[in-house]
Design a protein around this nucleic acid. Structure first.
Length: 269
DNA sequence: ATGCTAACCTGCGCGC
DNA sequence: TGCGCGCAGGTTAGCA
């Protein structure tokens, strides 16, 4: 998926157009996403959108009697367009809005989902999520306490959404680099001081990316179609074999849990 | 509990 | 130009 900054950028981009707006109807062109698009969406004719929230990487459209959960998966995006704008390949779902605009869900790989729930906080996909990385409950004491005795790698640990939401592969790599921590280190062996650096850097890197409109990768566009521009400041992600921007050493690329990890063997221990 | 693998899909870049 | 391969922002289910 887009990572958390892209999801938040999308949420913030579409929110002004969805507030005080109703969904006239939903057109489902291809219901086969990660899970089938909920049938209930056909019944919310004219329902007023009451809130446009984000929890982890889920965008949540709140109604009086429930909510729509939207996840963008690896390749999904939401675009607000004029109804006359031609439908593109992989535009699987369209929300027809009472303000005359269309909200289109496009997702080539179809790892995303669009689900109806009557009580979103208790939904199985939401209920077990850890704290938001930019909120106060996520701090060094919390991360340190949960990590004790954990043999899993620190990278996998911070990418576990039950520990903390929103840290995807790009920002896991980047925040570990900024903290001088090798992605291979056991979570349970990270010192409290190092954990404080890590928490600070996760917050900083995600916060900056949100401010700058999200990292642009191959198939992500913001809700208005403009690209983000965070990618030029990545220190390690996608740079295996190139020179470390801090010390000049050759960055190493390995695979952990089938995901690329890039790190500087000199700066990260 | 923990930890690994497979699975869900399409598209793109690379080597041949 | 085409073909096969490996890889890509995520996350869950299932099995050892």
């Amino acid at each position: 998926m887009p990572e958390l900054p892209e999801v938040e950028t999308t949420r913030a981009g579409i929110a002004p157009f969805l507030e005080q707006t109703a969904i006239e109807r939903v057109r489902v062109h291809n219901a086969k996403l990660r899970w089938p698009v909920s049938d209930e969406l056909a019944q919310l004719n004219g329902a007023m959108i009451r809130s446009i929230l984000r929890r982890g990487k889920y965008i949540i459209l709140g109604f009086d009697n429930g909510a729509i959960l939207i996840h963008l998966g690896m390749s999904g995006s939401l675009r607000l367009v004029e109804p006359s704008y031609e439908r593109k390949k992989h535009d699987h779902v369209e929300f027809v809005l009472s303000n005359g605009k269309l909200l289109r869900f496009n997702d080539p790989r179809r790892f995303g989902c669009i689900l109806w729930t009557e009580d979103w906080p208790s939904h199985p996909l939401i209920r077990h999520l850890g704290p938001e990385p930019l909120e106060d409950q996520f701090d060094a004491a919390y991360l340190y306490r949960l990590s004790r005795g954990k043999k899993t790698s620190i990278k996998q640990f911070i990418m576990n959404s039950e520990i903390v939401v929103g840290v995807g592969n790009i920002y896991a790599n980047e925040s570990l680099f900024l903290s001088g921590i090798s992605p291979k280190r056991q979570a349970g062996r990270i010192s409290k001081v190092a954990m404080e650096r890590l928490v600070d850097n996760i917050r900083t890197v995600l916060g900056k990316a949100i401010q700058q409109g999200g990292t642009t990768l191959r198939d992500f566009v913001n809700s208005d179609g403009s690209p983000g521009y965070f990618q030029q400041q990545l220190f390690v992600y996608g740079r295996g074999g190139e020179a470390c921007k801090k010390c000049g050493s050759v960055l190493k690329e390995i695979r952990q849990n089938n995901r690329a990890s890039v790190y500087c063997p000199q700066c990260q221990r």
